[in-house]
Design a protein around this nucleic acid. Sequence first.
RNA 1: GGAGGGUUCGCAUAGUGGUCUAGUGCGCGCGCUUGGAAAGCGCGUAUGCCGUAAGGCAUCACGGGUUCAAAUCCUGUACCCUCCGCCA
Length: 426
Amino acid sequence: MLDIKYIHNNPDLLKQKLTNKGSDPSLIDQVILADDSRKELVSKIDDLRHSKSLLEDKIAKGQKEPADLEFLKKAKVSLKELEDKATLADAEFTKVMRLIPNPPLDIVPVDPMGKQIFVLREVGNKPKFDFKPQDYVNLSEKLDLIDTERAAKTSGSRFGFIKNELALMEFALLQFVFQKLSKEGFIPLVTPVMLKPKLMEGMGYVERGGEEIYYLPKDDLYLVGTAEQMIGSMHSDEILDYNKLPLRYAAFSSCFRREAGSYGKDTKGILRVHQFDKIEMFVFSKPEEAVQEHEFLLKMEEELMQALKIPYRVLNICSGDLGDPAAAKFDIEAWLPGQNNGEGEYRETHSTSNCTDFQARRLNIRYRDPQSQDLHFVYTLNGTAFAIGRALIAIIENYQMADGNIKVPEALQPYMGGIKEMARKA
RNA sequence: GGAGGGUUCGCAUAGUGGUCUAGUGCGCGCGCUUGGAAAGCGCGUAUGCCGUAAGGCAUCACGGGUUCAAAUCCUGUACCCUCCGCCA
């Protein structure tokens, strides 16, 4: 959600920004109109209430006059009418307000269609194999590391059992990430995965993309698609301590996504599944520190990739490809040498967004400025530490050997109980 | 799932129809006092909306109702707590 005063003062700039994001610029005119009619009603109601309460004070002091009672009875009726109108006007205003996405920052490349790719850098050496590299689906099948067939039996398509050393590796990865991020000042967190509708809406993923979210009607709860939704929500309606900003969390959760509309895409394996585990970084920051926090999150992501020695590239996501809450976003794509029939390709493993005060406004998360004592909205940022499934895929493909066995990255070996290689079972 | 209790200003509490956005204590801020501090004393201490301003309006978990008037009465819902049952 944006600041309505800012909208009133900068309609043309915002229309341009919405156009850049591929959104409907007429939302700006709509919301201004809705706000004006809302204000008009509020003024009328306030005036009427004021004159009403003056008379009520008079009556309370014992000066009762029939004419006053008459007026008050009428006022009560017209007040009710006005209030009903105001409720409607308010609902309309809020509805439009919530449809307006976060305008992109200036660093975001403009491409309303969201087709273009802007590579900031490529990092790491792509592994050179003296054999034709296989993709992770083949590799993991031979080593009995992933079972999607039985997962289809138990749960349907787009699920997977993670087995044997790969199951151990999931927890090695978690351990590895938590160790590193704790040292960097992130608060380790394990979150609930069910979230109330009001808060899910607050995070800004329901207006568009609601189809993507699992919902439990019997309990009126959503299943989270990322821990980001939980961390933002846990501090809703709070005033955060200025001295504790930036407040950084590293949160583990399972994530649930319906993957509606991706039929036929990535149907094999576990690249795109309905349920996966992830450690997510989340930061509540002072506005003036948000850009540097965003870079810090990206740095964390890159350091994690580098520690695992997985080659990757960094993308500056263009305006048309930003989600509603994001004002700027960097993605990391890991190099998967086994894809594309052994030619290799980059696939997204990480994403970090600066959501400015868009989510904080909806969730009402503020801090008090120590100088002015004023309350301001915090800025929120999020970034993937590791989406476990995709990290495992990247490891499998980059660490494969000629015999089809897979080395365990050195950084993970301390957490693997002495296992240095995932090998074919006897 | 069953039975009971609760939800008021950062915290703790007072408040059963008008003088209550709301008293008191604690906490916090400013000042006096002091060589300095503590104590003491005085003053201040929620948020949102409308308005250039003066000022006005709203909010005592949330919604509906009674009344000229609701923190207070009636009613529905949510959340929390205790006990019982079930359970990893």
